[in-house]
């Protein structure tokens, strides 16, 4: 009973192992150290975006502007370096500050003006991506600064540095969400907003805070993304946004708020990345890749739904 619950709670990790073995069977390189690095590097930007979306999912809302925010904030940072020659450390801060500003606006719209987060952030995302398209005329903003692009391309003894950012972000998110008073307030607000309010929690501020955190993380993802690619262009795929929303759900974060563990968010991120890289490395015809990827995610969600159902069956 207890072991069954343990298995179901960690089903995302089991799926990661199963998919890895499957991919490794089709291309042995998949199980090599080199590809582990590859998976972790690819998971970094997505993983930080997943955290961004998760902060808003925990309060029962959603932030669909994260990808638009990523492109926007990294453009602002790159612009500051190119036009005003600011030092790269300042540019990183500017990038993240731009993300926070967007998050602040989203939060104000949702928490104080009571706008529907789904629509408000969707519109914000469209606006930001459109703004970047207009400002850059679809040209890539190349970032050559070595400091700025260090984390995205540097290696220490053959190991890329980038995944460190992923793990640090998740560790901090875990501490904040599981142990800080603010984090607990987020869970309470998402679990039952009226009860949280009646218990003396400033619910509006908590909701605003979740969006600011989301914006902060989207800005951070923007920095990592630009650092990794050596530039920023408006063509970040719309699939990225879908993955950023699917991953937390696969990892057990409730779309209705109040439930979800950081370790699950990490699992969801890694599972999606493993599926993606697996499909890149085994020579499947591109015509079927999208289909297989979609089916895999569907399978993961189905297993998760099964987990929730069997949990509910035990308790009445």
């Amino acid at each position: 009973m207890a072991s069954k619950k343990f298995l179901l709670d960690n089903v995302v990790w089991i799926l990661i192992v199963v998919f890895s073995i499957l991919a490794g069977f089709l291309n042995p390189f998949f199980l090599s150290e080199g590809n582990l690095q590859n998976v972790l590097v690819q998971a970094t930007t997505l993983g930080v975006l997943v955290l961004a979306v998760s902060f808003t999912l925990l309060i029962g809302e959603i932030d669909l502007s994260v990808v638009g925010n990523l492109v926007f904030s990294s453009m602002v940072g790159a612009y500051a370096m190119q036009q005003f020659g600011v030092h790269w450390t300042l540019a990183v801060l500017i990038t993240i500050a731009a993300g926070v500003l967007v998050g602040l606006l989203n939060g104000y719209f949702v928490a104080y003006l009571r706008m529907n987060s789904l629509i408000a952030t969707l519109a914000m995302g469209l606006f930001l991506q459109g703004a970047v398209l207009g400002a850059t005329q679809a040209r890539t903003m190349v970032v050559t600064d070595e400091g700025y692009s260090y984390i995205g391309s540097a290696t220490i003894g053959n190991w890329p540095v980038m995944p460190i950012a992923l793990f640090v972000a998740y560790l901090l998110a875990h501490i904040v969400l599981a142990y800080s008073a603010w984090g607990r307030n987020l869970y309470a607000t998402g679990g039952n907003r009226r009860a949280a309010n009646a218990a003396g929690i400033n619910v509006k501020r908590a909701r605003l805070g979740a969006f600011i955190a989301s914006g902060f993380l989207a800005g951070l993802a923007g920095f990592l993304y630009t650092s990794y690619l050596g530039g920023v262009s408006v063509t970040v795929g719309s699939t990225t946004l879908l993955y950023a929303v699917a991953a937390p759900v696969i990892g057990g974060v409730s779309l209705f708020g109040g439930r979800g563990r950081v370790i699950g968010m990490l699992g969801g991120t890694l599972l999606i990345t493993v599926i993606q890289t697996g499909l890149q490395l085994i020579n499947v015809s591109a015509y079927y890749i999208q289909m297989i990827g979609g089916a895999m995610i569907l399978l993961a969600i189905a297993v998760d739904a099964f987990r929730i159902r069997s949990e509910e069956r035990g308790i009445v």
Binding site: N27, F29, S32, G34, N35, Q37, N38, V41, Q42, T45, Y225, Y228, L229, S233, T235, V236, G237, T239, T240, Q276, T277, Q280, L281
Partner: peptide, 16 residues
């Protein structure tokens, strides 16, 4: 047609 995928695929193939 995605930069991040192009970078990832070339990186992985170079390692492989």
């Amino acid at each position: 047609n995605q930069h991040e995928q192009a970078l990832a695929v070339v990186s992985a193939t170079l390692r492989e």
